[in-house]
Design a protein around this nucleic acid. Structure first.
Lengths: 127, 127
DNA sequence: TCCATAGTTCACAACATAGGAACTATGGAA
DNA sequence: TTCCATAGTTCCTATGTTGTGAACTATGGA
């Protein structure tokens, strides 16, 4: 079984970060890890974003996050301990992670309030 | 020929923005548009990132940026006038675009200086 | 009317991604 | 020790996404 790959902080790229976080599932996982004080295992996220995510898919999402340099994963017995690397990334790309997490927050707040009011956004026409 | 699609500001998603900017060519195009005071046509970017980009590929990149809500394109005679929509986006997702552009700047600065010194980063081992 | 220029669309090849099934690694119980 | 349960990973394949050349469209000017 191949060993876990963690890029060194200098090999982390902006493109990699943006690509990893452009997926809603990965963004949700990462947001939760970044907020959480303690490490979390993968299975905690089998129902993130209110959908059942197959284990294999989840595993690939964790791999994407890991290889983009966003999280660190360590085996602890039978589980995985996942933590975010946000403080390292903050050093190299100041403000980036905060702005992205904040934008996701803005967006989900709007989504919640519009569904409560009857999903007005869903029918708004494009130009 | 299908009309140009511009999402309304409320339909712009973070995922869409991140995905669009996770491509180096699109990021370079967008950075240049965001910096530039005046509108620019597509052909100005046929050599962005020091590579020849086929016209058809470039056209799709502009379409991605447009449909992600990052730029606005208008036909002016035989050319296209492309401008960035950063002030709109700044309203909705404060700090996001600035942080991303800044991160790209950080990264390209490092790349430049490491190539000058003999590409030390290229051989640095991963964990 | 014709041409040149700027972009777009189409078709297809190459690459990336999702998910089920089979697998591996670890810790604990018998 | 051996066996089992749990947590993740890998493999395979079907489905999407993306890049590119060739053919096309739209516009302005000769």
């Amino acid at each position: 079984m191949r060993p876990l790959v963690h890029p060194s902080i200098d090999d982390i790229t902006v493109e990699g970060i943006l690509h990893a976080l452009s997926d809603p599932v990965r963004a949700a996982i990462y947001a939760e890890l970044a907020m959480s004080a303690c490490a979390q295992n993968c299975s905690n996220f089998l129902q993130v974003t209110n959908r059942d995510i197959p284990k294999s898919t989840l595993s690939l999402h964790f791999r994407s996050l890991r290889e983009a340099g966003l999280i660190r994963s360590e085996r602890r017995g039978v589980e995985m301990h996942n933590t975010s690397r946000c403080s390292e990334i903050e050093q190299r790309f100041p403000g980036l992670i905060g702005a992205i997490l904040n934008a996701h927050r803005v967006q989900s707040t709007e989504r919640d309030s519009s569904t409560r009011q009857g999903a007005s956004r869903a029918v708004r026409p494009h130009v």
